[in-house]
Design a protein around this nucleic acid. Structure first.
Lengths: 220, 220, 220, 220
DNA sequence: GATGAATGAGATTTCATTCAT
DNA sequence: AATGAATGAAATCTCATTCAT
């Protein structure tokens, strides 16, 4: 599955891992591909089982239903980005550098994990009905907001960022500039004839994003 | 169908419209709701026919297949925004005002037409396979790029915008800042607990977007 | 379907009957055979559809689910005996003759409609869970009790039956003497080596039953 | 398993019983509950194993297949009643007392062992196909017929019973009056609104049965 | 002997599409 | 043009049985 970087998750299982965990893992990976390719209604449990070199009975044994599998896949997707976010190394005392790193990480994650982007879109088409049933999502996602706030505060304290910027609003802007670029690249390509994921355009995009955010937060 | 503003499309039919056109219209409207709610694979032709107070045989008579109906719905969605874009009144000689108007229109269209946003997402999940088969999409979409370019050129000529800004890149930024906000509002709400479509947040968002774009294009 | 006499039910449909009613009828008949042969859990919707020269989709269209079909079959079975009971011609003024006729009818119905007997058994194995959901069963079944009571009262008034006999208790006795004979005939045959449904044993049984009931109700 | 009185069967195992016997015993008990609740087709080996606090592999180890387990359960059920019948203490020289005791035992066994009743019904729904494969059923069941015949003969000899009564026919009548009462109590309750197993109705039923049989056999 | 994991075959149910009128 | 009925194909889900340890 080229689409999705699973190395962080696999790493949680040591050499003592039991086979069932590997089974579940490969079913989950297969499910993510399937759900993000065909949507929930279009996904086929047969294909999911086959792609995982497993069988439908196992899938139902572990996840109960197609919907249960989707929910597990969704939570896995969020666990993946949370895990990655925890590892970003930000030097808060250098707010410009820190915000550059955050932008680069965020955009990079979207570019490297199109499955993540597709899963978020799929879940939004369902009005987040499944995510709503998951536990503690706000708690899990608070850390990233805390990081953004710390960077803003540091920049304001140093007099290089202007005050009054809302952390969530800024985070949404950072996310949006990269997310739509990746998410809508297929229709944009048809409409405007540009292959947005060509390396030169990806790096140009990162530059635009960074430039735009830095100018936005800069003290006048 | 509260979700989707069809007034512009309906307006194309005059008082002399024939009943079949109304049939097709209501099937299309129903299809858009269905496809954007359940995805292509999850959409049910029964529900589409019922919601349109029509029947499946009519649907097949007019659109040939579920896929044909989807394609028609997709083209209808794009016809809607093109139609709206044609009507924006931009005074190119006032580039700041013009770009403000363009941002407001773009964001407003997404907020007012969630069906549009959902359809774009659905089509991107399918890697734009259907849009690719539609004729002349680039030609149809060139006008909006031309407008952006004209605004940039005017601003640069006046010395208030900096040179070197790529029109498509700028347009993607404008679109992205609003699109993800609307598109991902459900998951964002669950993750961060803020109702993004509450009026005060919508207007705050427009302000952020405008501020961000204007600072980005401004000559130093 | 040799097992079940459907002539009374079929008769309700006149020459103006619509095809769908015939479809439902043959699905019901097939279902009764299937459920009484294999039980609810052992019944196969494939076989039901095939036996009715129909298809599974129709079955689901009309009855919603296997369980829904079972419920419809159960109600049909009870409608059948109620219908037949309504037609028994009893001369209350001749209580001995009347009770003979009632016993003969009851036993005869069990012998002629083994599907009825099997369905009752199946439903009792399920603790009447489905029958409980059907509407107005007590109301539908009151007429037979009223008949038994009228016969008893007439006999008592004439001084040939003894007083104090509970109608329901008597009806259960009449039913039981024939029901178990039909219902348990297979195990009884294996255990005791007698083919209970051989004509001579059937008529002997009717004689025993009649004798037993008449001696039981007789004034001393 | 409140339903089924297993004390007599358990008693066959002495204090020296080995664990495997207890395993088989609890699998059998669980199987009887399962088969009589859901029928053969509806029974689930998973549930049987779980209810016995055992596992499916054990079940297959001991009984070979679901069908084999059913057969074992069926034979166990018959062994239970045969065992109990062997213990009835009948004083043949007092035929009225003896027949009263036989009636009371028979009805009591049905009331106390609903699992027995349900199993007989289940097997009859399958046309006794399994019982037929069991060895020597007629031989095993002859003793009860012998007892009935002895009582009749004694009564006739004493001039208090009339001659010409067929022992099997009489036994079927005794059985039937109680069996249907227990077997069909669920549907009867729905149809006629009486809780037949309430103690007062159970004892009234025994009285009716006894009265009916005694009047039937009485010399005129 | 004992057990959790695994699976092929088959069950129920659904659905896009077509037909008859 | 319009519609309810019909259906083959395929979907989701289940289950008796076997395997590996």
């Amino acid at each position: 599955m080229a689409d999705i970087d699973r190395s962080n998750v696999e790493a949680e299982l040591g050499p003592g891992e039991r086979a069932p965990e590997r089974r579940k893992r490969s079913l989950l990976d297969s499910a993510i591909v399937e759900f993000t390719t065909y949507g929930i209604g279009g996904a086929r449990v047969d294909r999911i089982a086959d792609r995982a070199h497993s069988n439908k009975a196992m899938l139902y044994h572990y996840f109960g239903s197609k919907e249960g599998l989707y929910l597990a896949a969704l939570q896995d997707i969020y666990a993946g980005i949370r895990h990655a976010e925890d590892r970003i190394d930000l030097d808060i005392s250098e707010p410009v550098t820190a915000i550059r790193a955050l932008i680069a990480f965020t955009f990079g994650y979207y570019v490297d994990n199109p499955g993540f982007v597709r899963m978020i879109n799929t879940e939004n088409l369902h009005k987040a009905a499944h995510l709503r049933t998951a536990q503690d999502m706000p708690a899990i996602n608070r850390p990233i907001l805390t990081k953004v706030a710390a960077i803003i505060d540091s920049g304001v304290a140093k007099g290089i960022f202007r005050p009054g910027i809302d952390p969530l609003d800024l985070y949404i802007s950072i996310s949006a500039l990269g997310f739509t670029y990746v998410s809508n690249r297929h229709t944009l390509e048809v409409l405007f004839g540009r292959d947005l994921l060509a390396p030169e355009f990806v790096s140009a995009r990162l530059e635009t994003m960074t430039d735009m955010i830095l100018r936005y937060v800069a003290a006048d």
